[in-house]
Design a protein around this nucleic acid. Structure first.
Lengths: 149, 149
DNA sequence: ACCAATTAAATTGTATACAATTTAATTGTA
DNA sequence: TACAATTAAATTGTATACAATTTAATTGGT
Protein backbone atom coordinates (compact mmCIF):
# COMPACT_ATOMS: atom_id res chain seq x y z
CA UNK A 1 0.00 0.00 0.00
CA UNK A 2 1.74 3.09 -1.21
CA UNK A 3 1.16 6.34 0.57
CA UNK A 4 0.88 9.85 -0.83
CA UNK A 5 4.02 11.02 0.96
CA UNK A 6 6.23 8.01 0.21
CA UNK A 7 8.23 10.03 -2.29
CA UNK A 8 9.36 12.27 0.58
CA UNK A 9 10.86 9.43 2.62
CA UNK A 10 14.59 9.74 3.26
CA UNK A 11 15.06 6.19 2.08
CA UNK A 12 13.13 6.68 -1.16
CA UNK A 13 15.37 9.32 -2.68
CA UNK A 14 18.67 8.92 -4.43
CA UNK A 15 19.96 12.33 -3.39
CA UNK A 16 20.13 11.58 0.30
CA UNK A 17 22.23 8.39 0.26
CA UNK A 18 24.44 10.06 -2.32
CA UNK A 19 24.95 13.08 -0.11
CA UNK A 20 25.51 11.02 3.03
CA UNK A 21 27.79 8.43 1.41
CA UNK A 22 29.94 11.11 -0.18
CA UNK A 23 30.54 12.74 3.19
CA UNK A 24 31.21 9.40 4.81
CA UNK A 25 33.75 8.33 2.20
CA UNK A 26 35.60 11.64 1.99
CA UNK A 27 35.66 11.65 5.78
CA UNK A 28 37.77 8.49 5.70
CA UNK A 29 40.59 10.48 4.15
CA UNK A 30 40.75 13.10 6.88
CA UNK A 31 43.05 11.25 9.32
CA UNK A 32 45.61 10.73 6.57
CA UNK A 33 45.37 14.32 5.44
CA UNK A 34 45.85 15.64 8.93
CA UNK A 35 49.48 14.52 9.09
CA UNK A 36 50.10 16.13 5.71
CA UNK A 37 48.37 19.34 6.71
CA UNK A 38 45.98 19.27 3.77
CA UNK A 39 42.21 19.02 3.37
CA UNK A 40 40.08 16.94 1.05
CA UNK A 41 39.44 19.84 -1.30
CA UNK A 42 43.12 20.65 -1.42
CA UNK A 43 43.80 16.98 -2.16
CA UNK A 44 41.63 17.00 -5.27
CA UNK A 45 43.26 20.24 -6.41
CA UNK A 46 46.60 18.49 -6.03
CA UNK A 47 45.34 15.47 -7.95
CA UNK A 48 44.21 17.70 -10.80
CA UNK A 49 47.61 19.41 -10.89
CA UNK A 50 49.73 16.29 -10.44
CA UNK A 51 47.92 14.86 -13.42
CA UNK A 52 48.56 18.01 -15.41
CA UNK A 53 50.53 20.96 -14.11
CA UNK A 54 50.06 24.55 -15.24
CA UNK A 55 46.31 24.84 -15.58
CA UNK A 56 44.11 27.92 -15.47
CA UNK A 57 41.69 28.47 -12.62
CA UNK A 58 38.82 27.78 -15.03
CA UNK A 59 40.28 24.48 -16.12
CA UNK A 60 40.58 23.36 -12.53
CA UNK A 61 37.06 24.58 -11.83
CA UNK A 62 35.73 22.47 -14.68
CA UNK A 63 37.62 19.33 -13.73
CA UNK A 64 36.64 19.53 -10.07
CA UNK A 65 33.06 20.73 -10.69
CA UNK A 66 33.76 23.71 -8.43
CA UNK A 67 33.49 27.43 -9.07
CA UNK A 68 35.91 30.32 -8.63
CA UNK A 69 34.16 31.35 -5.43
CA UNK A 70 35.38 28.13 -3.87
CA UNK A 71 38.69 27.78 -5.65
CA UNK A 72 40.10 31.31 -5.57
CA UNK A 73 40.46 31.50 -1.77
CA UNK A 74 41.59 27.87 -1.65
CA UNK A 75 44.31 28.44 -4.25
CA UNK A 76 45.46 31.58 -2.44
CA UNK A 77 45.82 29.60 0.75
CA UNK A 78 47.72 26.87 -1.07
CA UNK A 79 50.01 29.48 -2.55
CA UNK A 80 50.69 30.92 0.92
CA UNK A 81 51.61 27.43 2.07
CA UNK A 82 54.14 27.28 -0.73
CA UNK A 83 52.54 24.42 -2.63
CA UNK A 84 51.73 26.29 -5.83
CA UNK A 85 52.17 29.54 -7.71
CA UNK A 86 49.40 31.75 -9.12
CA UNK A 87 50.60 33.66 -12.16
CA UNK A 88 48.50 36.07 -14.16
CA UNK A 89 48.92 35.36 -17.84
CA UNK A 90 50.84 37.88 -19.94
CA UNK A 91 48.79 37.28 -23.10
CA UNK A 92 45.44 37.59 -21.31
CA UNK A 93 45.48 39.37 -18.01
CA UNK A 94 42.14 37.85 -17.00
CA UNK A 95 43.65 34.39 -16.79
CA UNK A 96 45.52 33.04 -13.77
CA UNK A 97 47.67 29.98 -14.29
CA UNK A 98 48.36 27.57 -11.45
CA UNK A 99 51.68 25.73 -11.29
CA UNK A 100 52.98 23.44 -8.58
CA UNK A 101 56.14 24.24 -6.64
CA UNK A 102 58.75 21.66 -5.65
CA UNK A 103 56.92 21.36 -2.35
CA UNK A 104 53.65 20.74 -4.13
CA UNK A 105 55.19 17.98 -6.21
CA UNK A 106 56.86 16.49 -3.15
CA UNK A 107 53.51 15.87 -1.49
CA UNK A 108 52.63 13.45 -4.26
CA UNK A 109 54.82 10.67 -2.91
CA UNK A 110 53.47 11.19 0.57
CA UNK A 111 49.91 10.68 -0.71
CA UNK A 112 50.73 7.59 -2.70
CA UNK A 113 49.53 5.10 -0.12
CA UNK A 114 46.34 6.92 0.83
CA UNK A 115 43.94 5.62 -1.84
CA UNK A 116 44.84 2.02 -1.03
CA UNK A 117 44.56 2.64 2.72
CA UNK A 118 41.11 4.15 2.36
CA UNK A 119 40.14 1.58 -0.26
CA UNK A 120 40.97 -1.28 2.07
CA UNK A 121 38.33 -0.01 4.52
CA UNK A 122 35.64 0.02 1.85
CA UNK A 123 34.35 -3.45 1.25
CA UNK A 124 32.55 -3.48 -2.05
CA UNK A 125 32.65 -6.36 -4.51
CA UNK A 126 34.59 -5.71 -7.67
CA UNK A 127 31.33 -5.56 -9.58
CA UNK A 128 29.64 -3.15 -7.19
CA UNK A 129 32.65 -0.86 -7.22
CA UNK A 130 32.70 -0.87 -11.01
CA UNK A 131 28.96 -0.29 -11.24
CA UNK A 132 29.11 2.54 -8.73
CA UNK A 133 31.94 4.13 -10.61
CA UNK A 134 30.18 3.77 -13.95
CA UNK A 135 26.84 5.13 -12.71
CA UNK A 136 28.43 8.11 -10.96
CA UNK A 137 30.16 9.01 -14.19
CA UNK A 138 26.86 8.80 -16.00
CA UNK A 139 25.50 11.32 -13.50
CA UNK A 140 28.48 13.58 -13.94
CA UNK A 141 28.77 13.43 -17.68
CA UNK A 142 25.37 13.27 -19.19
CA UNK A 143 22.57 11.67 -17.24
CA UNK A 144 21.44 14.95 -15.71
CA UNK A 145 19.59 17.39 -17.95
CA UNK A 146 18.37 20.91 -17.43
CA UNK A 147 14.72 20.00 -17.77
CA UNK A 148 12.63 16.93 -18.35
CA UNK A 149 12.50 15.65 -21.91
CA UNK B 1 51.15 0.15 -18.98
CA UNK B 2 50.31 1.23 -15.50
CA UNK B 3 52.13 4.05 -13.87
CA UNK B 4 53.23 4.50 -10.29
CA UNK B 5 50.93 7.48 -9.75
CA UNK B 6 47.83 6.09 -11.45
CA UNK B 7 46.13 5.61 -8.10
CA UNK B 8 46.21 9.39 -7.63
CA UNK B 9 44.29 10.16 -10.82
CA UNK B 10 40.99 11.94 -10.28
CA UNK B 11 39.30 9.40 -12.49
CA UNK B 12 40.72 6.39 -10.66
CA UNK B 13 39.16 7.07 -7.28
CA UNK B 14 35.64 6.43 -6.14
CA UNK B 15 35.63 9.31 -3.65
CA UNK B 16 35.85 12.03 -6.24
CA UNK B 17 32.92 11.10 -8.52
CA UNK B 18 30.91 10.44 -5.37
CA UNK B 19 31.70 13.87 -3.99
CA UNK B 20 31.08 15.62 -7.30
CA UNK B 21 27.90 13.73 -8.18
CA UNK B 22 26.43 14.37 -4.75
CA UNK B 23 26.91 18.10 -5.13
CA UNK B 24 25.55 18.02 -8.65
CA UNK B 25 22.41 16.13 -7.68
CA UNK B 26 21.62 18.09 -4.53
CA UNK B 27 22.20 21.24 -6.57
CA UNK B 28 19.25 20.27 -8.76
CA UNK B 29 16.94 20.81 -5.82
CA UNK B 30 18.03 24.36 -5.14
CA UNK B 31 15.72 26.17 -7.60
CA UNK B 32 12.70 24.42 -6.11
CA UNK B 33 13.82 25.15 -2.57
CA UNK B 34 14.31 28.80 -3.30
CA UNK B 35 10.61 29.47 -3.70
CA UNK B 36 9.95 27.65 -0.44
CA UNK B 37 12.71 29.51 1.38
CA UNK B 38 14.46 26.33 2.50
CA UNK B 39 17.87 24.76 1.88
CA UNK B 40 18.85 21.21 1.07
CA UNK B 41 19.93 20.48 4.62
CA UNK B 42 16.69 21.87 5.98
CA UNK B 43 14.83 19.71 3.48
CA UNK B 44 16.35 16.50 4.81
CA UNK B 45 15.61 17.61 8.38
CA UNK B 46 12.00 18.08 7.28
CA UNK B 47 11.96 14.66 5.62
CA UNK B 48 13.22 13.04 8.82
CA UNK B 49 10.51 14.81 10.85
CA UNK B 50 7.66 14.33 8.39
CA UNK B 51 8.44 10.63 8.52
CA UNK B 52 8.45 10.70 12.31
CA UNK B 53 7.71 13.78 14.36
CA UNK B 54 9.02 14.43 17.86
CA UNK B 55 12.58 13.18 17.65
CA UNK B 56 15.61 14.08 19.74
CA UNK B 57 18.52 15.98 18.25
CA UNK B 58 20.60 12.80 18.51
CA UNK B 59 18.05 10.75 16.63
CA UNK B 60 18.04 13.27 13.81
CA UNK B 61 21.84 13.38 13.85
CA UNK B 62 21.98 9.62 13.44
CA UNK B 63 19.41 9.46 10.65
CA UNK B 64 21.01 12.28 8.67
CA UNK B 65 24.62 11.26 9.38
CA UNK B 66 25.24 14.77 10.73
CA UNK B 67 26.51 15.95 14.11
CA UNK B 68 25.16 18.44 16.64
CA UNK B 69 27.65 21.03 15.48
CA UNK B 70 25.81 21.13 12.17
CA UNK B 71 22.29 20.51 13.40
CA UNK B 72 22.04 22.69 16.49
CA UNK B 73 22.38 26.01 14.66
CA UNK B 74 20.25 24.70 11.80
CA UNK B 75 17.44 23.65 14.14
CA UNK B 76 17.59 26.99 15.93
CA UNK B 77 17.20 28.77 12.63
CA UNK B 78 14.28 26.54 11.69
CA UNK B 79 12.66 27.27 15.04
CA UNK B 80 13.03 31.01 14.45
CA UNK B 81 11.33 30.56 11.09
CA UNK B 82 8.43 28.94 12.93
CA UNK B 83 8.75 25.52 11.34
CA UNK B 84 9.55 23.54 14.47
CA UNK B 85 9.79 23.69 18.24
CA UNK B 86 12.83 22.76 20.35
CA UNK B 87 11.78 21.52 23.78
CA UNK B 88 14.16 20.40 26.49
CA UNK B 89 12.92 17.13 27.97
CA UNK B 90 11.56 17.18 31.52
CA UNK B 91 12.79 13.69 32.39
CA UNK B 92 16.31 14.31 31.10
CA UNK B 93 17.35 17.91 30.77
CA UNK B 94 20.19 17.01 28.44
CA UNK B 95 17.78 15.98 25.71
CA UNK B 96 16.11 18.36 23.29
CA UNK B 97 13.07 17.11 21.40
CA UNK B 98 12.17 18.50 18.00
CA UNK B 99 8.52 18.75 16.95
CA UNK B 100 7.05 20.26 13.82
CA UNK B 101 4.65 23.19 13.94
CA UNK B 102 1.58 23.53 11.73
CA UNK B 103 3.75 25.57 9.39
CA UNK B 104 6.36 22.84 9.29
CA UNK B 105 3.74 20.25 8.41
CA UNK B 106 2.23 22.55 5.80
CA UNK B 107 5.46 22.64 3.81
CA UNK B 108 5.10 18.92 3.17
CA UNK B 109 2.44 19.34 0.52
CA UNK B 110 4.44 22.06 -1.17
CA UNK B 111 7.43 19.69 -1.47
CA UNK B 112 5.40 16.81 -2.81
CA UNK B 113 6.22 17.38 -6.47
CA UNK B 114 9.91 18.08 -6.01
CA UNK B 115 11.33 14.54 -6.04
CA UNK B 116 9.55 13.75 -9.31
CA UNK B 117 10.62 17.06 -10.86
CA UNK B 118 14.25 16.45 -9.99
CA UNK B 119 13.97 12.77 -10.85
CA UNK B 120 12.72 13.56 -14.33
CA UNK B 121 15.99 15.39 -15.03
CA UNK B 122 18.08 12.41 -14.03
CA UNK B 123 18.15 9.87 -16.78
CA UNK B 124 19.27 6.58 -15.32
CA UNK B 125 17.89 3.22 -16.32
CA UNK B 126 15.74 1.52 -13.75
CA UNK B 127 18.52 -0.97 -13.14
CA UNK B 128 21.24 1.65 -12.74
CA UNK B 129 19.09 3.62 -10.32
CA UNK B 130 18.42 0.51 -8.27
CA UNK B 131 22.06 -0.53 -8.31
CA UNK B 132 23.19 2.95 -7.31
CA UNK B 133 20.71 3.02 -4.49
CA UNK B 134 21.70 -0.43 -3.29
CA UNK B 135 25.44 0.24 -3.39
CA UNK B 136 25.15 3.59 -1.63
CA UNK B 137 23.24 1.89 1.15
CA UNK B 138 25.97 -0.70 1.41
CA UNK B 139 28.43 2.15 1.91
CA UNK B 140 26.24 3.79 4.51
CA UNK B 141 25.31 0.74 6.48
CA UNK B 142 28.18 -1.64 6.55
CA UNK B 143 30.67 -1.64 3.73
CA UNK B 144 32.96 0.87 5.42
CA UNK B 145 35.04 -0.34 8.35
CA UNK B 146 37.34 1.41 10.76
CA UNK B 147 40.42 -0.43 9.58
CA UNK B 148 41.37 -2.96 6.99
CA UNK B 149 40.52 -6.58 7.75
C1' DA C 1 25.35 9.59 49.21
C1' DC C 2 29.61 10.62 46.68
C1' DC C 3 32.03 11.31 42.50
C1' DA C 4 34.31 9.76 38.29
C1' DA C 5 32.65 8.50 33.84
C1' DT C 6 29.37 9.09 30.44
C1' DT C 7 26.06 11.34 27.63
C1' DA C 8 23.39 15.13 24.94
C1' DA C 9 23.67 19.53 23.14
C1' DA C 10 25.87 23.54 22.43
C1' DT C 11 29.90 26.21 21.31
C1' DT C 12 34.20 27.49 18.91
C1' DG C 13 37.08 27.62 15.13
C1' DT C 14 38.28 26.39 10.52
C1' DA C 15 37.24 25.13 5.80
C1' DT C 16 34.40 24.64 2.26
C1' DA C 17 30.25 25.44 -1.37
C1' DC C 18 27.80 28.33 -4.10
C1' DA C 19 24.63 32.16 -5.68
C1' DA C 20 25.13 36.73 -6.99
C1' DT C 21 27.73 40.60 -7.92
C1' DT C 22 31.85 43.11 -9.18
C1' DT C 23 36.16 44.13 -11.51
C1' DA C 24 39.17 44.10 -15.15
C1' DA C 25 40.44 42.50 -19.63
C1' DT C 26 39.27 40.98 -24.21
C1' DT C 27 36.25 40.32 -28.31
C1' DG C 28 33.07 41.21 -31.78
C1' DT C 29 30.83 44.38 -34.56
C1' DA C 30 28.84 48.56 -36.55
C1' DT D 1 37.96 52.98 -33.53
C1' DA D 2 34.27 53.11 -30.11
C1' DC D 3 31.69 50.25 -27.22
C1' DA D 4 28.37 46.77 -25.96
C1' DA D 5 28.82 41.97 -24.91
C1' DT D 6 31.48 38.45 -23.11
C1' DT D 7 34.80 36.22 -20.28
C1' DA D 8 37.96 35.03 -16.14
C1' DA D 9 38.74 35.76 -11.50
C1' DA D 10 37.74 37.76 -7.44
C1' DT D 11 34.57 39.32 -3.97
C1' DT D 12 30.51 39.27 -0.93
C1' DG D 13 27.22 37.07 1.73
C1' DT D 14 24.94 33.05 3.43
C1' DA D 15 24.76 28.25 4.78
C1' DT D 16 26.70 24.22 5.83
C1' DA D 17 30.23 20.35 7.75
C1' DC D 18 32.95 18.78 11.20
C1' DA D 19 36.79 18.37 14.71
C1' DA D 20 37.51 19.65 19.24
C1' DT D 21 36.05 21.53 23.37
C1' DT D 22 32.71 22.92 26.81
C1' DT D 23 28.60 22.76 29.63
C1' DA D 24 25.16 20.64 32.10
C1' DA D 25 22.76 16.55 33.41
C1' DT D 26 22.64 11.71 34.41
C1' DT D 27 24.61 7.07 35.56
C1' DG D 28 27.25 3.65 37.65
C1' DG D 29 30.12 1.84 41.02
C1' DT D 30 31.95 1.96 45.79
Amino acid sequence: MTEKYDCLRLDHQICFPLYAAARKVTGRYTPYFRELGITYTQYIVFMALWQQDDQTVSEICTKLYLDSGTLTPLLKKMEERGWLKRTRSKEDERIVRITLTEEGWALRDRCLEIPAMVGSCIHLSQKDAEDLYRILHLLLEGAIYDSEE
